[in-house]
Amino acid sequence: MSSVLSTAMADLDEDVVLAEIARLQGSGTPSLEIISALQEGMAIVGQKFEEKDYFLSELIMSAEIFNEAGKLLGTEATDAAGTLGTLVLGTVHQDVHDIGKNIVRSVLASHGVKVIDLGVDVPAAKFLEAIREHRPAAVGISCLLTTCFGNVKACIEEIDAAGLRDGLKILVGGGPLDEAAGRYVGADLVCKDAMIAVDWFKTRAAAAA
């Protein structure tokens, strides 16, 4: 495990992270080992965020670096690192807020979840298609607009109607989406932050083991 890499990741030093990945790749280090060093760095980022040493901008920056690193490593390697299961993620139809969703993507990816990000303003049909294709453990729907809660509800109803809800959990989140709204839309879990989803994936993996 490269401590240079995890430290640079934790310090958000993009140049060092990318250079170190190139060096490790050159010396034949397996991708999964590189990813686990990155994940270790991301865990420190998360910890610093909890301790209010880092703020949202640092989480966003870590996501950027993690994505850049992912490009060097290739999707095959990053997918293989998704040992906790798969999440299909997107911001609901007619909503374009994505700062939170992007943080969720990188936090989950750095904890070993394979994330399929469908982007923003995602119609229900696209969620259904991705569920059929990727057979995820959970679907994550981000929504920050009360005017779009109805779209979340409709999306979940379509997932149900298509017979895809069996064994599939629906996680929702976004600033104003509280517990009451979560019940209204028919979600399984309302996530105030990304870590709630991480915990859910971990509990699920532990139960399966």
Partner: peptide
């Protein structure tokens, strides 16, 4: 007054 409360409360 929270948005969600005004819309759904």
């Amino acid at each position: 007054v929270p948005s969600a409360m005004l819309s759904y409360g």
